[in-house]
């Protein structure tokens, strides 16, 4: 790519599409979109070299709002789509976008195996601790006393801890961000995308409509008080004991990313039928 090309694609606006988001005014996801475009611009990647893959939910609408190649699939399966794409197109930068329902509930199994498989991609979960799109039901990260029509008096269940699960399952990079800090989030996304293997970025992104209480997050979040570690045991202890509002890169591992060995193109497909020949 020429220098001129690079300059052409260096502004965040170049990564935004003309499609108008369906999000409620004030939704945290607007800021996540802003962080995406800023991160892509910082990386200087041509938009056509990026694929943004998602499932279903308010958060999963993000691909069409970018000017990258996008894939808006079915509920919970974005990581699988991304795995098939990245393994066959290692030249692309693959970013997966999900919500706490999409990623931790219906897609929970894929989350474990994507961490374990460690294919080079970045997984962003916009956690608002609620099912926004279906209008306010509890998700795996919702507090036990969150009272809804579907869970009168609350679920009584303790929330799921995505970062610990990611660490235990083998994710190679783990960070927590707050959507209300788009510059910091963009910086972390840049690091996550650059880091080889499976990078997991949990973005606290308030649902102003069904969780107005989450507007308080602004005052609760704070930078992680300690430096990033590459030691999973230390990272585990920190993540397990922090208050859930620690922002920063919490773990940076050194596992080798998964990639199949591609054989050279056989000169002749006929070779494959040899074993049938008598």
């Amino acid at each position: 790519m020429s220098v001129v090309d690079l300059q052409r694609t260096c502004k965040p606006a170049d990564y935004k599409s003309a499609v108008k988001p369906i999000w409620c005014p004030g939704c945290g996801d607007y800021h996540v979109l802003m962080s995406f475009t800023r991160a892509f611009a910082q990386l200087g990647l041509p938009p056509e070299q990026i694929a943004v893959i998602s499932g279903i939910g308010c958060s999963s609408r993000i691909p069409a709002y970018t000017n990258c190649y996008g894939f808006h699939g079915v509920h919970g399966r974005s990581l699988a789509v991304a795995a098939g794409l990245k393994v066959t197109r290692p030249d692309l930068t693959v970013v997966v976008a999900s919500g706490d329902g999409d990623g931790y509930s219906i897609g929970g199994n894929h989350f474990l195996h994507a961490c374990r498989r460690n294919i080079d991609m970045t997984y962003v979960v916009m956690d608002n601790r609620v099912y926004g799109m279906t209008k306010g039901q509890p998700s795996p990260t919702t507090e036990p006393d969150f009272d809804t029509a579907l869970s009168p008096g609350g679920t009584g269940l303790s929330p799921f801890h995505p970062l610990v699960i990611a660490l235990a399952s083998g994710a190679n990079f783990i960070a927590r961000c707050f959507s209300g800090e788009p510059n910091e989030t963009a910086d972390i996304l840049v690091e996550a995308i650059r880091h080889p293997g499976f990078s997991f970025v949990e973005i606290l992104s308030p649902c102003v409509t069904f969780r107005p209480d989450e507007k308080e997050w602004k005052s609760l979040v704070h930078p992680a008080p300690v430096a990033t570690t590459n030691d999973p045991a230390r990272a585990a202890r920190r993540i397990m004991t922090d208050d859930g509002f620690n922002i920063g890169i919490l773990y940076r591992g050194e596992r080798r990313p998964y990639g199949p060995e591609f054989g050279a193109q056989a000169a002749d497909l006929a070779e494959l039928e040899c074993e049938f020949e008598q």
Partner: peptide
């Protein structure tokens, strides 16, 4: 041998979405 690859999926939901990807 012909420049392709195979990925073992965690279940059939993943398998079909992988091939779609």
């Amino acid at each position: 041998k012909v420049g392709g690859s195979l990925l073992q999926a965690e279940d059939e939901l993943a398998a079909i979405n992988m091939i779609i990807g």
